[in-house]
Design a protein around this nucleic acid. Sequence first.
DNA 1: ACACTGAGGTTGTATATACAAGAATATACC
DNA 2: GGTATATTCTTGTATATACAACCTCAGTGT
Lengths: 237, 237
Amino acid sequence: MIPKFEAIKQAISEEIEQGRWLEHEQVPSENALAERFSCSRMTARRALTELVEQGVLVRSQGLGTFVAPFKSQGAMMAIRNIAEEIGERGHQHSAQLLLLKPVAAETEVAIALGVPAGGTIYRSCLLHLENGQPVQLEDRYVNPALVPDYLDQPFTSQTPHEYLSQVAPLTQAHHLIEAVAPNDVQQRLLALEGPEPCLQICRRTWSSQGVVSYARLLHPGSRFRLGGHLMVESTSR
Amino acid sequence: MIPKFEAIKQAISEEIEQGRWLEHEQVPSENALAERFSCSRMTARRALTELVEQGVLVRSQGLGTFVAPFKSQGAMMAIRNIAEEIGERGHQHSAQLLLLKPVAAETEVAIALGVPAGGTIYRSCLLHLENGQPVQLEDRYVNPALVPDYLDQPFTSQTPHEYLSQVAPLTQAHHLIEAVAPNDVQQRLLALEGPEPCLQICRRTWSSQGVVSYARLLHPGSRFRLGGHLMVESTSR
DNA sequence: ACACTGAGGTTGTATATACAAGAATATACC
DNA sequence: GGTATATTCTTGTATATACAACCTCAGTGT
């Protein structure tokens, strides 16, 4: 039994995802939502509050609650699909599938995926182009236990990110991103564009059932952009 | 007038910062806090909930609420002192103090520090060298209200990071880090090493009393390293 | 034309209450 | 001793209510 405030959150998220509630549009007030969902104002309020924390909504006292702009400056971290991002810039996205097959898990990847070292995992490698220019090299490892059909995907019209987003247990996926120093080996090996430094970003996605995928994204240092910002929060002594 | 739940948050944060409540120790229950602060359970609960979101506390149903481990399990993000890091690599660290004086806060910095724009803040600028080679340019802004003696520090043998770590209210400081795309203006202006791309990292440190310092760290793109990793956590749908 | 006032709607804070759900401990029973 | 069962304390969800703070806008008065 899912809690009521979760149901309300999902309903609101869906309205936005489906495009019925547009950016900057005002969403129903707490009282209106309370009536619509037959709940108290505090319950509706909780749903709104949590969506604000997630960056889906913005609100201001006296004014109302509104759908947040997608490329929200304040939004902690948008984990976005590169194809979508390129499309929004009005550019053309294409991708070359360089590799798609089962491989033995090296220790680094095995740890990242939480599978025994040496076990079989799926690996895909794509080069994403923006107007013909390489903008991202995606080197992704996927947990076969959680996504058994991964190798059957063509990945011509659909990116791995999109496919994984559609897999059921990922609806509320959790991501971990690490941006690491340029890895010389990777860089030379996959030669995105010569000896220029680039930013490597590792992205781990997990659902409640385990780590789903581990991807290394390489961006040319001169022109990478990641939804504007890459932010981190933590505590330390 | 600060809200009551904020006051409770600060009181709890202080207990932890001062070391009176230790790691993994159980904190008073919602009911106990409600009585102690003469408030309703829901108000105490809100304070706890928000501290959980901030990673200060952890809680589990039926068990209780506990002080979160400082270097949380995943070692999410180690904010380290560059001198220490260089020392660990067996290299020699040195630093040039380029600037140390009060300045008027520009809007960007004022917002970051949470002080009124145009107010006076302290600024320091250091170039960190590893075996004579520049590895980090530290451009730091400090909230004078929280660290009034900042300008009196020599910063010859002690880095700002070390000094700030010793300032009492920082025992349990909270950090926010943003890694942003190379900022051309900054880069040209401060010319670390020519036109080569570099990584800029913004770091904000705050205690329960407010934002303490805001630093911009510039690393040469070719050789920066940040404790190995820079990590981010977030949720997405 | 302009400033003030007030009404109504919105979010923000605070309280009191009730019940559900999870976890540990004590108790009764076999 | 070992196994249920009950109790109790904890956090989690939900509701109803009250008032404060803030914004907009219509209306009023000068």
